[in-house]
C-alpha cells in the first residue's frame, strides 16, 4: 500500500494473526482487512460496525441485493478492488452470477425487479454527481421501494463510497480471482465485524 505503516506497522500479535489467516485460508490478508487492523480505535472498529450494520443489519433488502449495491457503487467510482470483491460476494450470495454480471454491464436491460433497478440507478447518480433531487427519490418510491429501503440503500452507498476512496487512495492490491472468492466466502459467513 502507499503508506508503509499499512503494510508493516502492526503489533506482533496482529502480525501473527495475519500469518495464521494466510496459513489457513491459503491467501494473503486482503488490504481492506489490514486497514481495519491499523490503529483500529481511530477508524477500523467503528467503520466495521457501521459497514456491518449497513450490509448485514435488519433490512428488507437481501444480503445479495446489498452486496450488488456495493459492487454497483464501486463500479461507478471505478474502484477495481471493491468492484471485484463485492461482485464476487453478490454472485455467491444470489447463487446467480449471470444476473450480477448483467446488472454491472447494463442496469437498464438487466433482469432485476424495478425497485432494485430504480434504487441502483439512484445510488449511481448520487455517487457520480454528489446530489439528488426529490424527484429522483419519488421515482424510486413510485416503483415500489419503501422509504425504509431507500434509507437502507443509502447506508450501503455511504459505506462503499468511503471504502472505495480508501481502496484507491491507499492503493489496495487487487487479488487473484481465487483470493476474491475466498474473501466473498468469508464476508457471507462472518460479515464485516
Amino acid at each position: 500500500m502507499r503508506l508503509d505503516i499499512l503494510d508493516h506497522g502492526y503489533s506482533p500479535a496482529t502480525k501473527l494473526l495475519f500469518a495464521l489467516i494466510r496459513l489457513f485460508s491459503g491467501h494473503p490478508v486482503p488490504d481492506a482487512a489490514k486497514l481495519a487492523f491499523y490503529r483500529p480505535d481511530f477508524y477500523g472498529t467503528r467503520a466495521k460496525e457501521f459497514t456491518h450494520e449497513a450490509m448485514r443489519g435488519p433490512s428488507a433488502w437481501s444480503v445479495g441485493d446489498r452486496e450488488l449495491m456495493a459492487a454497483y457503487v464501486s463500479k461507478v467510482n471505478g474502484s477495481a478492488f471493491c468492484t471485484a470483491a463485492h461482485t464476487a460476494t453478490a454472485r455467491r450470495a444470489y447463487q446467480d452470477g449471470p444476473m450480477v454480471t448483467a446488472v454491472l454491464a447494463d442496469l437498464e436491460s438487466a433482469p432485476v425487479e424495478e425497485p432494485l433497478r430504480s434504487t441502483l440507478r439512484m445510488l449511481g447518480k448520487l455517487t457520480a454527481e454528489g446530489k439528488l433531487s426529490a424527484e429522483d427519490m419519488r421515482q424510486v418510491l413510485a416503483v415500489g421501494a419503501s422509504r425504509q429501503q431507500v434509507k437502507d440503500a443509502l447506508a450501503v452507498c455511504v459505506a462503499f463510497n468511503t471504502t472505495d476512496r480508501l481502496a484507491d487512495a491507499f492503493g489496495f492490491e487487487v487479488l487473484s480471482p481465487e483470493g476474491f472468492e475466498a474473501g466473498a466466502k468469508y464476508l457471507l459467513k462472518r460479515g464485516y465485524r
Partner: peptide
C-alpha cells in the same frame, strides 16, 4: 473519504425527506 461520503448521505436523506 468519510467526509465526502457523509455529504452524500446528507444529500440522499435530504432528497428523501423532501420527496
Amino acid at each position: 473519504a468519510v467526509g465526502q461520503s457523509a455529504r452524500l448521505y446528507e444529500a440522499g436523506l435530504t432528497a428523501l425527506a423532501e420527496a
